[in-house]
Computed example of a mutant assay.
Amino acid sequence: MEKSVAEHYGAQFFKEQSGGSFESASVIVPLVLRLFKVNSVVDVGCGVGAWLHEFATNGVSDYLGIDGDYVPRDQLRIPSERFRSMDLRSITDIGRKFDLACSLEVAEHLPESSANEFVSALVAAAPIVLFSAAVKGQGGRNHLNEQWPSYWAERFSGHGYSAFDCVRPQIYDDSRIRPWYRQNLLVFCRGDRCPEGYSSLTSPFDLDRVLPDYFEYKLQEVTEGKSAAIAARHLLGNLGVLARAARRRSGL
């Protein structure tokens, strides 16, 4: 039987997720604020509000977090009145404009049929979008639509938004930041809000490249997984030997 959305994203999920988000946000948010003039922020798929908490700490007082009704309110790190419950699978009009929209490691949790509508909602909300979504093979809880960044860049381009790699070069080897942010984080901008001194990315070669730290992180994950599987096979084999010896001793 298929799990409900609430079962996938319960209190334990957000408890596990928030620690890495807080530490990553503490480094990335000040960089974003140095690149762009931001007085208002909406975080679509905000979880318990780790990123918005960091924007508020850095002086942004106008902000809103949007996520599903399954987010545990007692874990929110933003005032409850700054949180709005919406179904991210069919989000349309957020209701107002912001200087910056964030969506960080969220889009992969939505079905592919929601991808175009989700991007449309983000660009309708702000001229600048800080965006990160799981690449193919990244893995994670209930990942339904892992895609390379060029997939998302094509959808933003349809709205006249260009991709800029203005954050990753500053964080790619910073171990305080979770590997998936260092690998996936891009900024999509409307033409009049592009970051000074940066050229837009258009080719899959530039958009989809894999950073060394992320590659090593996934390689270690695979290696550890294989080691665990080998250990399990040895354990099962040893249990089989013990069971056969016990049968022999009992005369069975």
Rank of each mutant, 00 (worst) to 15 (best):
H159R: 07
F22S: 02
H143M: 04
G139F: 06
R84P: 00
P79C: 06
C194Y: 09
V60R: 06
A245D: 10
L31V: 08
L76K: 14
G10Q: 07
Y181I: 03
T223W: 07
W180I: 02
S61C: 10
P79N: 06
R178G: 06
L219F: 14
S90R: 14
V60A: 09
D93F: 13
L236A: 15
L122M: 07
G158A: 12
A126C: 14
K15F: 04
R233E: 13
D213N: 02
G158W: 11
P204E: 12
N116F: 13
A107K: 02
Q75D: 13
W51M: 10
D208H: 07
A125N: 12
G237C: 10
V135Y: 04
S200V: 08
G137E: 03
S21W: 01
P149T: 06
G225C: 11
W51R: 06
L110Q: 03
K136M: 09
A231H: 10
G140M: 02
V38H: 05
V119D: 01
W148V: 01
D192R: 13
Y214V: 00
R89G: 15
W152A: 09
W152C: 03
H8K: 01
D69I: 12
V167N: 05
R248K: 10
V41N: 04
V60Q: 07
R233W: 00
N238S: 14
L219C: 04
A134E: 09
A124R: 15
C46R: 03
V106D: 08
V27Y: 14
S157I: 00
Q147Y: 05
Y9N: 01
Y70T: 02
K218T: 08
S85Q: 12
I66C: 04
H159C: 04
N142C: 05
L235I: 01
W51S: 09
F22I: 15
F118N: 03
Q75G: 02
L207M: 05
A115Q: 01
F13D: 00
I28M: 13
E54Q: 09
V41G: 08
H8N: 04
Y198G: 08
Y217M: 06
D87G: 06
W152M: 09
V32E: 06
R182F: 09
F118W: 01
A246S: 14
Q17L: 13
G95E: 11
P169S: 11
